[in-house]
Measured scan of single mutants.
Amino acid sequence: NSLAEAKVLANRELDKYGVSDYYKNLINNAKTVEGVKALIDEILA
């Protein structure tokens, strides 16, 4: 998966839960796919 794909999928996942734009910005600023995954795990914990 590319970083861009990971960000799109992460933001879709956040949308399902009604997560605020603050967290979407964190996702969009992530530098690695692993970073995106770690943020998602933390946000949805």
Score class of each variant (00 low, 15 high):
N1L: 14
N1S: 11
N1P: 13
N1W: 09
N1T: 14
N1I: 15
S2W: 09
S2V: 10
S2D: 14
L3M: 02
L3S: 01
L3R: 00
L3Q: 00
L3G: 00
L3Y: 00
L3D: 01
L3N: 01
L3A: 01
A4H: 11
A4M: 09
A4P: 03
A4S: 11
A4G: 05
A4D: 13
E5M: 12
E5N: 10
E5Y: 06
E5Q: 12
E5I: 11
A6K: 06
A6G: 02
A6R: 03
K7W: 01
K7G: 01
K7T: 02
K7H: 02
K7Y: 01
V8K: 14
V8I: 15
V8Q: 15
V8H: 15
V8F: 10
V8P: 00
L9C: 14
L9E: 15
A10R: 00
A10M: 02
A10F: 03
A10Q: 01
N11Y: 13
N11K: 10
N11I: 15
R12Q: 15
R12F: 13
R12C: 04
E13S: 05
E13M: 15
E13I: 15
E13R: 04
E13C: 15
E13K: 07
E13V: 14
L14T: 02
L14K: 01
D15H: 05
D15V: 06
D15L: 07
D15K: 06
D15A: 09
D15G: 06
K16F: 09
K16N: 08
Y17G: 03
Y17A: 10
Y17F: 12
Y17K: 07
Y17T: 05
G18T: 06
G18M: 07
G18A: 07
V19N: 06
V19K: 08
V19T: 08
S20V: 04
S20R: 04
S20T: 10
S20Q: 07
S20K: 06
S20D: 11
D21W: 05
Y22C: 13
Y22H: 12
Y22F: 11
Y23P: 01
Y23T: 04
Y23E: 04
Y23L: 07
Y23S: 02
Y23F: 12
Y23M: 08
Y23V: 07
Y23C: 06
K24E: 03
K24H: 09
K24N: 03
K24L: 06
K24P: 02
K24A: 05
N25V: 08
N25E: 15
N25H: 14
N25L: 07
L26Y: 04
L26K: 07
L26S: 03
L26Q: 06
L26R: 05
I27K: 00
I27F: 01
I27H: 00
I27S: 00
I27N: 00
N28E: 13
N28V: 06
N28I: 08
N29I: 07
N29P: 00
N29W: 05
N29R: 09
N29G: 11
N29F: 06
A30G: 02
A30F: 02
A30K: 03
A30Y: 01
A30R: 03
A30E: 09
A30N: 02
A30D: 01
K31D: 12
K31Q: 15
K31Y: 05
K31I: 11
K31S: 14
K31H: 09
T32F: 02
T32N: 05
T32L: 01
V33P: 04
V33C: 03
V33A: 04
V33Y: 04
E34T: 06
E34C: 08
E34Q: 10
E34S: 09
E34D: 11
G35R: 12
G35E: 15
G35T: 14
G35M: 14
G35P: 00
G35N: 10
V36F: 03
V36G: 00
V36R: 00
V36A: 01
V36T: 01
V36Q: 00
V36L: 14
K37Y: 13
K37E: 07
K37G: 04
K37I: 11
K37T: 09
K37R: 11
K37A: 09
A38C: 11
A38W: 09
L39A: 04
L39W: 03
L39I: 13
L39H: 02
I40H: 03
I40Y: 13
I40W: 06
D41V: 14
D41S: 12
D41H: 08
D41M: 14
E42W: 15
E42D: 08
E42G: 10
E42Y: 13
E42R: 14
E42N: 09
E42P: 02
E42T: 08
I43C: 04
I43Y: 10
I43P: 00
I43D: 00
I43G: 03
I43A: 10
L44W: 07
L44T: 05
L44F: 08
L44Y: 04
L44V: 10
L44K: 10
A45S: 12
A45C: 12
A45G: 11
